[in-house]
Design a protein around this nucleic acid. Structure first.
Lengths: 347, 347
DNA sequence: GCGCTCGGTGTAAGCCCTTACATAGCAGTG
DNA sequence: CACTGCTATGTAAGGGCTTACACCGAGCGC
């Protein structure tokens, strides 16, 4: 038995397919009794309209996609979840695409674009070139955690200023040998954090720090980089990490080297993942509104899909000072927060 | 200018639309020179076939979906990522749907089913009823981390045995007052863990333990539950947690209550998330192949979509003993692993 | 030379909807 | 009572692709 179609339902309800469509989409007037009959017929056949056909006719996909490098750690998960929430709120399905190492990322993204009404593109997953190509083909794009491209808006969390200030805080505590752990080339946000780190040195009149100690976003890489960095008599007294998970790797490295945090080495992270509060000492970090980033990107995308031009947006971050960056180890609930203001980028 | 269609391309290449389709789908014979011309025409117009139309004609969505409760923590992220990998490998897009608290989950899942070729359904997101309904409508389903339903197969990680053994390990260390932290009603897997916990008591001839201390999967809930549990003179000497994040919440609770792990209280988790190795002392836990769960579910789904009947599958877990569960605190690299065998459920 | 097989191509019939436009009935006007 | 203005419904034209089937010419065995 072939699955029922709008024709089957129309026949059973004794109306035309146009009326069935009207009932379902609630477009155009339908008599109450007719509506009942149609609904009943649809229920009896347990029919639901074929999305493919509906989309084809209406020229709409009813779906939005998000492209991200990986789903490693809370940051990406939360962003994706925020995006999904917004998509559902806008009555769209959410498609995901992780590029990881995949070399044909461009191709995959282009392919994905053919099945959605718009796309959120994170980080360095694809080149600006591809973004322009997408827009050229009529796919609205919103960038996330990377700079705007032409008329394509970007949603970001403030990084530069927060990085400057958390570094300045460490310097104010007396640290003079600081290291940055992370890879500025891995993501635009990390580059901002690195530049803030540099800026704080400049502003404090300190000599320029050493090059970044390259590390990815995962704990294992933080452990490896942290071990290399700290297993040295000339080790820094403070390590500013590009994200919390790498910082947790440094925690493990310090523990395995017999170093105490913050007495022997101060550590800061970025993101404020839950584990940051579970470790001892609690990890000082910069909180960014991960879920909100995804949600806002989704909302901007919806606007663009609707034809409304959208401006770029920078969400505020919040410095969260905790015991890992130097306050006496005996302080019990070190959660002072210094908010930074929201700001909108000029178009 | 309307976007190009297969007709535009055919015209430009001087062939019929059938030939264009053949070139693109590589179905049927096409002369090499003709192929070139078509490809060139498509490139010049930067045309790519409309997926909606293609899907409609071929009666295929080229997409698979996964339904999960939330994306909180590494477990769900990794599972989803594994699923995405498999989907891409099978040349399908991945759709996600988080049900969170949303009360109309059933409806949303049914809606999602209308836009994919098959669905992976995790945990208690929807009832068995809905699963049957989906299958009834011709949507293949694979269950994940929940029991099979009729002919719908399930992919799971072994829980009962591992829970029995890690509890037995604690008992062997001399613990007699153990508590289980987690909500057996929250997820079938947690229920298995709870039953394993009970079983170990039985086997050891210990009196039945108290009821589970209810807690969700997130750290904050673990903290709250842990605080309530430990802030009591009659506190247990060991806490078996339903997952690592809740266990990390217990870590924070213990710290805030001035209790030492494992001297004052032993703690175990579940999942073996990266942070389990970063905390001090390292967290003993049960590793489950999170990514692999998602991948296998995706693979089974592909099989079912292809019309191949698929059997349920249980993946092995691995007990990872670390300092949190009792070995002297000075032991440095406590990573003994006790593997459990893979097994297949009989159909 | 003759029918045959077969590679290469075109024709046209769907796939299942949405929606502009046409039609019909009916209550309310002047 | 003809006419207007609705509301309720039907008709039919797509939307952009896949694919069964028909067709045509060329190489081939005999």
């Amino acid at each position: 038995m072939p699955s029922p179609s709008i024709y089957t339902v129309a026949q059973r309800a004794g109306v035309s397919i146009a009326t069935v469509s009207r009932v379902l989409r609630d477009s155009g007037p339908v008599a109450a009794t007719t509506r009942e009959r149609v609904l009943a017929a649809a229920a009896e056949l347990s029919w639901s309209p074929n999305r493919l056909a509906a989309g084809l006719a209406a020229r709409v996909h009813g779906a939005a996609g998000i492209v991200f490098p990986d789903l490693a750690g809370p940051y990406f998960s939360q962003v994706v979840l925020g995006f999904e929430e917004q998509a559902v709120a806008d009555d769209r399905s959410a498609l995901i695409l992780a590029t990881h190492g995949r070399l044909n990322a461009d191709e995959m993204v282009l392919d994905l674009a053919a099945r959605v009404d718009g796309l959120v593109v994170m980080d360095r997953t694809v080149t600006d070139e591809v973004v322009r190509c997408l827009e050229g083909r009529g796919s609205p794009v919103v960038l996330l955690a990377r700079p705007a491209v032409g008329a394509t808006p970007a949603v970001r969390a403030e990084s530069l200023d927060a990085a400057t200030r958390i570094t300045a805080h460490l310097i104010a505590l007396g640290h003079t040998r600081l290291a940055f752990l992370g890879d500025p080339e891995a993501a635009p946000d990390v580059d901002d954090r690195w530049r803030g780190f540099l800026l704080a040195h400049l502003e404090a009149g300190l000599p320029a720090p050493g090059k970044p100690v390259r590390s990815g976003f995962v704990q294992d890489e933080g452990y490896a980089a942290g071990t290399a960095l700290l297993d040295d008599a000339a080790r820094p007294t403070a390590v500013v990490c590009a994200n919390d998970e790498a910082a947790l790797g440094v925690y493990a490295a310090a523990r395995d080297l017999g170093l105490r945090i913050p007495d022997d080495v101060a550590v800061t992270g970025w993101d404020d993942i839950p584990a940051a509060r579970a470790v001892t000492p609690p990890l000082a970090t910069v909180r960014q509104p991960m879920r909100e980033l995804g949600r806002q990107a989704g909302a901007l995308l919806s606007a663009r899909i609707a034809g409304v031009p959208a401006d770029s947006l920078t969400l505020p971050t919040e410095i969260v000072l905790r015991a890992s960056c130097g306050p006496p180890a005996n302080s019990r609930t070190p959660t002072n927060r210094i908010p930074t203001p929201t700001r909108r980028l000029e178009p």
